[in-house]
Design a protein around this nucleic acid. Structure first.
Lengths: 344, 344
DNA sequence: GTTAGCACTCGACTTAGATGAGTGCTAACC
DNA sequence: GGTTAGCACTCATCTAAGTCGAGTGCTAAC
């Protein structure tokens, strides 16, 4: 579709623009060592590239900037960099190796390090509960009317919920239910928990319990959203403010607002989770108007072939695709390896 | 110290400035109904107030804006508003009444509502673990090398931590320790947990366990920061961007950066926790340079007279002190009442 | 096919002038 | 003596005009 020379020039323009955030002129491309043509020749090719939709001109007498289509082409034809291990990743890798247990604070900290080394915003989607199974269930009464339910998953995540206990439900009854659940439902995937609970244990429970109805009410309350619970960790949102294209408060406001909405973030990250490898969504490819000038690069890490969580880096469309894609690639592989070692 | 007329004028200026974010001139004060003097008279008083340090002039021919001292005086002499229940608070109150159990999501949601109705940034410091006591302890092994420790407090908070188990420590040994802890340390305040553990159970554990050293290592790891663990919930950070004084990205950047640092936030909020009632820290009274143009209003809620957590609203120094102070006052009382009902 | 030259475009920056909100001071008024 | 009207003065903000320069498109020559 594009000639080799066009590809070369487009590449040079995107590279330059990523670095400078200013429209790129023909002369500056010519002066770089790697494109051995005069400004005039490059100008001709630039005009063609603009006709083809790969470049845009902010105004008549300015240089060119890449269009979304231009970025897309650039990303799709990117050559992998980082043969060796980048020194910047070393700290993060060490950190994970040290604390293999993926507790909340560890993930939050990882998000922080990631946003620091990239200077972009990092979004981590924590291990998905969906595909993990029940390891242990417990119900602890705090006083006559309140109890805490605790669910531990096979990957060591702990979810808890405070529930109110209707009068008439005794501690011994709760114990019965807990024992029943622990003996029958351990190793059942969380997303099947609710159906299995009703189908297989309904009758048994009805037989053993005097306050069947109330008990079911409590359990309902506990398991109501175990099948969708997932956590997002955000760090470096303010890095958006350092990008020259967002020096106007109006423009960042919407972006930061969206970043504060955890459910939206979750949906956005989850949308990429289906396909393996590194995903790049450029500008309007993200289905949010606020992100029309942002790109999101994501990678998924997994356990036993099942996608567990997602790592994402959000930056302006003019972001360092090559570097970030390599980083995420290495990191997601690292995580996958470590997790499989941990829960083999 | 100030004459009645000076107080009246200062009040009018602060009020106007809070509304408009523009320097206030003598004429506009005169035109408000409540100060019945001509611009000239007001100008004279304004000059005096500036000499006394209550007002400042951005430049020679501009109006006056309140100095930090001016805000301080205004706040200290503020008359309580909101005799009735403000309608804006109703939704929040209902929300709490519905879900008395103070789980994480509830607090996060409360922070969101609060930032929405105030249009400022809300910072909630979750129930402090420090003064709560141990309700239940549990250690669940996930595989040969990993286990999850779960601590439930008397207020129903659940803390968990993944720990690695050194080879040689058996499941039955862990059970022994768990039983020992549950029988001896229930109802001990968390901050005394570590010392009690070593002093009173050290010998007993040494007698019963074959891998005493390793076990101590694990427990150390679990309890290492139980005495300081507290959570902050932040919402509406982007509301800062809507304030005209922060329309320059440079100025907000530092503020938002600081808001992302949870430990700093925690320290800041915790600093106000000693004294009861509503605290107002104006400008440089917050010990962070980034907050030199911000004010923080906080209120503490408690259980049995012990401070449990803190609610805070952060805005520009030019913030609606009267309204926010009233809101927080009502809310903290509500929370205190509800908590005492819940855990009587 | 490539390059040099040149007229042209247009945003960004600079300067000068006009505008108006607001002050400080003086003198008159009650 | 406290209060107010009047007036000269200040200074940020806005506007218009002018300059600058980076960059283009086109043509003609290599």
């Amino acid at each position: 579709m594009l000639t080799e020379r066009q590809r070369l020039i487009l590449n040079a323009i995107v590279d330059d623009y990523i670095r400078s955030a200013e429209p790129v002129g023909s002369r500056s491309i010519s002066k770089r060592g790697d494109v051995g043509y005069s400004p005039a020749t490059i100008r001709n090719e630039m005009a063609d590239l603009e006709d083809l939709g790969f470049l845009e001109q902010p105004h008549t007498s300015a240089g060119r900037i890449p269009s979304h289509k231009g970025y897309r082409y650039y990303v799709d034809h990117l050559e992998p960099i980082y043969q060796g291990l980048p020194t910047e990743l070393r700290s993060l890798r060490n950190y994970f190796a040290e604390k293999l247990n993926a507790s909340e604070q560890v993930i939050q900290h990882a998000a922080m390090i990631l946003s620091h080394i990239t200077n972009y915003t990092s979004i981590l989607l924590g291990p998905e509960v969906f595909h993990t199974s029940l390891r242990h269930f417990q119900l602890l009464s705090l006083n006559e009317t309140t109890a805490v339910a605790i669910i531990v998953t096979s990957t060591g995540q702990v979810e808890s919920k405070t529930v109110s206990v209707p009068p008439g439900v005794s501690v011994s009854e709760m114990e019965k239910v807990v024992n029943l659940l622990n003996s029958k439902l351990v190793n059942v995937p969380l997303y099947k928990l609710k159906t299995r609970l009703y189908r297989e244990l309904g009758q048994e429970m009805e037989r053993h319990l005097t306050n069947f109805e109330e008990m079911i009410g409590i359990l309902d309350n506990i398991f109501v959203d175990t099948d969708t619970d997932q956590r997002v960790y955000l760090s470096g949102a303010t890095n958006m403010l350092t990008q020259p294209e967002f020096k106007d408060v109006e423009k960042v406001k919407d972006i930061l607002d969206l970043l504060e909405e955890t459910p939206t973030l979750m949906k956005m990250m989850a949308a990429t989770q289906g396909s393996a490898g590194i995903q790049v969504r450029i500008g309007t490819e993200n289905d949010h108007e606020a992100f029309a000038n942002c790109s999101l690069i994501t990678a998924t890490y997994s356990l036993d072939g099942e996608a567990l969580g997602t790592i994402g880096i959000l930056g302006p469309t003019r972001m360092e695709y090559a570097r970030v894609m390599s980083l995420l690639g290495i990191l997601s592989k690292d995580l996958t390896t470590m997790l499989s070692k941990l829960y083999k």
